[in-house]
Simulated scan of single mutants.
Amino acid sequence: MKTTNTLSATLAGLLITGNLVSSLALAHSSDTPVGEDVAALVESIRIANQRFEDVNVALAEGYIPDPSGQCVSAAEEGLPAELGDMGIHYIRPDLLGITATEPRIDGTGTHTDFLNPAILLYEPLQDGSLVLVGVENLVFQKAWEAAGNTEPPTFAGRTWDYMANDPDTEIDEAHGFAPHYDQHVWFRDNAATHLEPFNPLVSCAYHAK
């Protein structure tokens, strides 16, 4: 995902740091929900974000489509195709706390509230429409540690995925971002889990490149 320099100047300082609703135990929880508990948690998040099934609502609330135009797939990232895809990302630069786009996208973001996510995930359909299939949050490692955190964020007992680019590979493992942690939550049942980065039941097949 890539943002633009014009966003940095206007949105720096607009970071909204969110805490998760404690009753849902969305992050930093000592409990590890399993099975039906995770499904119920995901359903609560889906309902909270149901209005974004209409992408025009997302646009009206400040989300923007990934300026790179990319629909992220495991295969194009050099990973096994059977992992599936992520879809098209719609991002809230203010919730990500974007402060720079060069040499890599960086920011002050430590936002972890999945009821008010920083990123929406859409699957493109053959008719050109978009279907909301999940949400995501991303926190920048430097900002996260500067906030006093000594461990990565967790969700439902799962440590968020760590992303940092390896300059010795052709693939940009961090998608243009500075080192960060991110966590996906899938509304469409994932054959593996609701919480993995890619979903085998999500497809970029109809993405207009």
Score class of each variant (00 low, 15 high):
Leu79Gln: 12
Gln50Asn: 12
Pro124Val: 08
Ile45Ala: 09
Ser23Tyr: 06
Leu115Asp: 00
Asp94Pro: 02
Glu76His: 07
Thr10His: 13
Ala40Glu: 10
Ser129Ile: 12
Leu26Gln: 01
Ala164Asp: 09
Gly13Tyr: 15
Ala164Leu: 14
Tyr206Leu: 03
Thr112Tyr: 02
Ala147Thr: 06
Gly176Tyr: 07
Phe155Asp: 01
Tyr206Ile: 10
His194Gln: 12
Glu102Trp: 10
Val135Tyr: 02
Asp166Ile: 15
Leu115Trp: 00
Thr3Tyr: 13
Glu145Leu: 07
Arg188Glu: 07
Ala118Ser: 07
Val55Gly: 03
Ala74Ile: 08
Glu173Gly: 14
Ala74Lys: 12
Leu7Met: 12
Ile16Ala: 09
Ile16Thr: 01
Thr159Gln: 13
Pro67Ser: 14
Ile64Asp: 03
Gln50Asp: 13
His207Lys: 13
Pro33Met: 06
Leu11Val: 13
Glu53Leu: 13
Thr112His: 04
Gly13Gln: 14
Ile171Asp: 01
Gln141Asn: 12
Ala75Met: 05
Glu61Phe: 08
Asp94Lys: 04
Pro117Phe: 01
Ala100Tyr: 00
Pro124Ser: 06
His207Ala: 15
Pro103His: 14
Asn49Tyr: 05
Ala81Val: 14
Ile64Gln: 13
Pro152Ser: 11
Gly78Trp: 04
Leu26Lys: 00
His194Leu: 06
Pro65Val: 11
Ile45Trp: 01
Ala143Cys: 05
Val21Gln: 10
Ala100Leu: 10
Glu145Ile: 11
Pro103Ala: 08
Ser30Gly: 08
Glu53Gly: 04
Ala48Arg: 05
Phe187Gln: 06
Asp168Met: 12
Gly109Met: 05
Arg51Met: 15
Val57Phe: 08
Ile171Gly: 00
Thr10Leu: 11
Asp189Val: 11
His89Asn: 05
Glu196Trp: 01
Gly134Lys: 01
Thr32Cys: 05
Thr101Leu: 06
His180Leu: 07
His184Asn: 09
Val72Lys: 03
Val38Gly: 00
Ala147Gly: 13
Ala74Met: 07
Leu14Asn: 12
Pro117Tyr: 00
Ala146Asp: 13
Ser30Trp: 07
Tyr181Asn: 03
Tyr206Ala: 15
Val34Gln: 00
Ile64Val: 14
Ile98Met: 12
Phe155Gly: 00
Ile47His: 04
Val42Thr: 03
Asn19His: 07
Phe52Trp: 14
Leu121Ile: 14
Pro152Ala: 11
Thr4Asp: 14
Tyr206Asp: 14
Arg46Gln: 06
Thr32His: 02
Glu61Gln: 08
Gly87His: 09
Ser68His: 09
Asn19Ala: 14
Gly157Asn: 07
Ser44Ile: 00
Met1Trp: 12
